[in-house]
């Protein structure tokens, strides 16, 4: 266990350094940070002064080691847009994203697991076909569009929920549902197929023969085994939400989390803030990955960690 953790943390560290290197290469070598961050009408003197102020005029290898070093110390510099430490801004937005993602994953699991179990009991039946069709349709919708549809229906037509910003708990409902629905659709399909697999296994016949009530057979025996892939998938859904969907969904609802902040940092031409966001998100994803691996061990003792 200890060796496994050490190995995974080392792997994680490689990824974090990799992310930092890629960000450096893209922003400093492919793009010109001075041109990106200053308005087009800036004079040559302004550009030179700006470059000197942020150290872009130094040799590239000096910049590189400085960049890596300060990233590992969580020192990204001041955001150009808000003129305060970028990390501070990121850490303010982070809980809002975590709240949204957390709430939506709870919602997705609550919706998906019972439905997935229900459909698995009668594959090919009416309910099964209906839910599979619904899930496929739901998965085909782009999530920004799903969000906008919810805004049109529940915000504009029915006027039940506020549609932009954050503030009250009501503000979180529509964005959380937008996150949750596609995840729920994927989880329904997965729970269904995992349960069908389990119910066809021979131990189920034994349990049946022992006259165990059907409800107990499904809940206590089959689902306990099917839960492993379902939990893996939920972990992946969280990662997906943090690493990608949050940008789109939060922008649709102007929810002031990390994703919306990333888009704002691009429109405000604030590369420093964007770098801080990418670094923090990468760190979170790696942490979740490691936690997932450890959680396996506890759910399924057959799994050996190497």
């Amino acid at each position: 266990m200890g060796r496994f953790l050490l190995k995974r943390i080392l792997q994680g560290a490689i990824v974090v350094i990799g992310v930092t290197v890629v960000v450096f290469v893209v922003t400093r070598l492919i793009g010109d940070p001075v041109r990106v961050m200053l308005p087009l009408e800036a004079t040559a003197e302004q550009r030179a002064a700006f470059a000197a102020q942020l150290g872009f005029d130094r040799p590239i290898h000096v910049q590189f080691f400085d960049f890596i070093g300060s990233a590992l110390r969580f020192d990204f510099g001041n955001s150009l847009w808000q003129d305060r430490p970028a990390l501070e801004i990121v850490l303010e937005a982070l809980p809002r994203t975590l709240l949204l993602v957390g709430a939506s994953m709870v919602l997705a699991v609550i919706i998906a697991v019972p439905l997935g179990i229900l459909t698995s009991l009668k594959p090919g039946g009416f309910l099964d076909r209906l839910l599979v069709t619904l899930s496929l349709t739901g998965l085909s919708m782009p999530n920004f569009w799903l969000g906008l549809l919810l805004i049109v229906i529940f915000g504009v037509q029915l006027q039940i929920f506020p549609i932009f910003g954050s503030g009250t708990l009501m503000h979180a409902v529509l964005p959380a549902v937008t996150f949750a629905l596609p995840s729920a659709a994927r989880l329904v399909m997965l729970t269904r197929s995992a349960m069908i697999d389990e119910l066809n296994k021979s131990y189920v016949a034994l349990v049946k023969a022992k006259n165990v009530p059907f409800r107990r057979l499904v809940g206590a025996h089959a689902f306990r085994n099917a839960a492993v892939p379902v939990m893996t998938m939920t972990g992946w859904e969280i990662i997906r939400a943090l690493a990608g969907y949050s940008v789109v969904v939060e922008t649709v609802f102007a929810w002031p989390g990390l994703g919306f902040l990333a888009i704002q940092s691009i429109t405000r031409q604030d590369l420093i803030l964007l770098q801080a966001i990418v670094f923090v998100v990468a760190l979170m994803i790696i942490t979740i990955n490691i936690l997932m691996d450890v959680a396996y061990k506890y759910i399924d003792p057959r799994i050996k960690l190497t």
Binding site: V36, V247, A262, V278
Partner: peptide, 19 residues
């Protein structure tokens, strides 16, 4: 393995912020 742990969309954002 390394790239799978990489936040994909954010990589696009970094590239699209300079290109």
């Amino acid at each position: 393995d390394t790239q799978l742990a990489f936040p994909g969309l954010l990589l696009y954002l970094v590239i699209l912020s300079v290109v």
